[in-house]
Every structure is written in structure tokens, then in C-alpha cells.
């Protein structure tokens, strides 16, 4: 197996477990379950990429881990963060964990930002809600530091701005600053760069890479784009119609996948290997639903 893709990922048994999802099933109302029997394990400091098409259940899995599913959702199985069971935990305890022990970055930064509040105050809230207060001056200093750490060099100007005054890339950096503020054990990223430009995407991914490493945080990284996942994660789980059909180290997924759907995803992502004008391989060449 290749180990050149750096930080975390290989399933070394000695590594402490940050997240253990076992046999998770989620259903909404009477519809068939959106997530069926999903099991995942992420060790301390490891990063797992979860890939699949839209509607495959990736985001529902993430929301179940965060305890953010709507009330009418039913869940079975187990979700443990640092050996603490999260399923069935009461809301007060869960919301103490969110933002401190675990945090989430969504595709659209405005879902996480309050449009009526200055950015600095929103970042300060993350510190204030989860840490012992040490005076407002100290908080201000920490906020500016947090913004500088995510590459927002002019922290002062950004802190005084409202979200709409920032670009999409700047907003996503602010959300990252909030997600990373309390050095969580687990950061869940759900398509965090899909709405961004290619160049901004590259910068944000590099930043996330560096900041996760600095904090030693684990990461569940959700994307439909295998190339983006490969930039950050060294192991990959493939989700299809609510189930994990394959998981393993990145190298194994790329070169030695067992499931035809996985092989199709890899082939479709290798567009750079196809001569101009020649037929591109598609997932349907390898696997078709109901066949």
C-alpha cells in the first residue's frame, strides 16, 4: 500500500479511535432508509474521504454524526465520538460537543454564518460558548489570531465586516476558522469547496490540510469528486444508495477496487488520461443500477 499521501488514513490498530460509526441506519418517515448499516472508523488525526453521488446518503450520515437530523428522522446503530455514544444523547450535551469536540463545514458558507452579525462576533461566539471566559480583550485577540491562521491576513477588517461584504472564498475561510477554533477531535467537511473557484479551492484545501495537521484533528471529508478527496485523505469509503460498498486506503481504491461502481468512479475521474475527442469512460460502463 502506498503511504506517500501523508497524514493519517492507514488503519493501524494502535491508533486511538476518534469516530466509530457502527451499523448506522437512518430513515425518514415511512420511506425506505436513506442510510443502511453504515460502519466507519476514523483514528486520531486520520482523514477519511466519503464519496458518492448526490442522494447516496453521504450528507445524512454526516448529519447523523453531528446530531443535526430533523426530529422525525429515526436512527439505529451506534455513533461514538472518543468512546462516547452520541445517538440518543440529549440535546444539551450534544450542543456542548458541537463546536468543541466536533464541528462541521458545509458547502455553502452562508448556511453557517448569520448575515446580520459581524464576522468577528460570530467567531468570538464559538470561543465564548465553549471556553472559560477570559475577558473580552483576550477574546478579540483570539478571534484575530483565528482569522489570521486561516489566511485572512487583514483580520481586523474581516472581523468588522458582515458576511455579504466578503467573497465566497473568504466566507468559507471564516467558517473554517470557526470549525477549527476549539481544536475539535473531529471536523466534518461536506463538499466544502464545491461552490468555490478552482484556484480558491486549491488554497482552501491546502489550508485545511495544514490546520488539521497542526491541531491533530481527525476529518470526515465528504465529496463527489475523487480528485479533491485524494488531495486530503489517505483512505476512502464509497457510498451508493445508502450503503458503504467499499472502503480502504486511497491507493487500493485507485488501483485495486473491488466494486464495479468504485472502478467506474475512478475511471470517470481520470479524464486527463483520455485523448481529446475520444470517448470518456463513464460509471455506466462499469456498473448500472438494477443490473
Amino acid at each position: 500500500m502506498s503511504t506517500e499521501h501523508g497524514s493519517g488514513g492507514e488503519r493501524s490498530e494502535g491508533v486511538e479511535t476518534t469516530l466509530a460509526v457502527s451499523d448506522l441506519t437512518v430513515s425518514f418517515g415511512r420511506r425506505p432508509p436513506s442510510v443502511r448499516g453504515v460502519s466507519l472508523r476514523i483514528g486520531r488525526g486520520e482523514r477519511l474521504g466519503l464519496i458518492g453521488e448526490s442522494g447516496s446518503g453521504k450528507s445524512v450520515t454526516a448529519l447523523a454524526v453531528m446530531g443535526l437530523l430533523p426530529e422525525y428522522a429515526q436512527t439505529w446503530g451506534s455513533v461514538q465520538l472518543a468512546e462516547q455514544e452520541l445517538l440518543g444523547m440529549n440535546d444539551r450535551r450534544l450542543s456542548r460537543l458541537r463546536g468543541s469536540a466536533m464541528s462541521m463545514v458545509f458547502q455553502e458558507p452562508m448556511t453557517a454564518l448569520d448575515p446580520t452579525m459581524r464576522v468577528g462576533r460570530q467567531v468570538a461566539e464559538v470561543f465564548a460558548l465553549h471556553a472559560v471566559r477570559n475577558g473580552t480583550g483576550a477574546t478579540r485577540h483570539r478571534v484575530l489570531n483565528a482569522l489570521v491562521e486561516v489566511g485572512l491576513g487583514e483580520g481586523e477588517r474581516i472581523a468588522n465586516a458582515y458576511p455579504h461584504e466578503l467573497s465566497g472564498g473568504q466566507r468559507q475561510r471564516v467558517v473554517l476558522a470557526m470549525a477549527l477554533a476549539n481544536a475539535p477531535d473531529l471536523v466534518i467537511c461536506d463538499e466544502p469547496t464545491t461552490a468555490l473557484d478552482v484556484t480558491v479551492q486549491a488554497q482552501v484545501l491546502d489550508l485545511l490540510d495544514a490546520q488539521l495537521t497542526t491541531r491533530g484533528s481527525s476529518c470526515l471529508f465528504i465529496s463527489h469528486d475523487l480528485a479533491v478527496v485524494a488531495r486530503l485523505c489517505s483512505s476512502v469509503a464509497v457510498m451508493l444508495d445508502g450503503e458503504i460498498v467499499e472502503q480502504g486506503p486511497l491507493g487500493q481504491i485507485l488501483h485495486d477496487a473491488e466494486h464495479p461502481y468504485t472502478r467506474g468512479l475512478v475511471a470517470a475521474a481520470r479524464i486527463d488520461r483520455v485523448q481529446r475527442g475520444e470517448r470518456l469512460p463513464t460509471v455506466a460502463d462499469f456498473w448500472e443500477r438494477g443490473r
Binding site: 448526490s54 463513464t282 460509471v283
Partner: peptide
């Protein structure tokens, strides 16, 4: 579009343009 259908639409465009 999802990566899984992207290739199909691009193949279609290539064929039609030709």
C-alpha cells in the same frame, strides 16, 4: 452534474459537435 453522469453528457456533446 455528478461526476458519474458528467462523462455521459460530455461524450454526447463531443458526438453532436462532430
Amino acid at each position: 452534474l455528478d461526476v458519474s453522469v458528467r462523462g455521459q453528457v460530455l461524450n454526447l456533446l463531443t458526438d453532436l459537435v462532430a
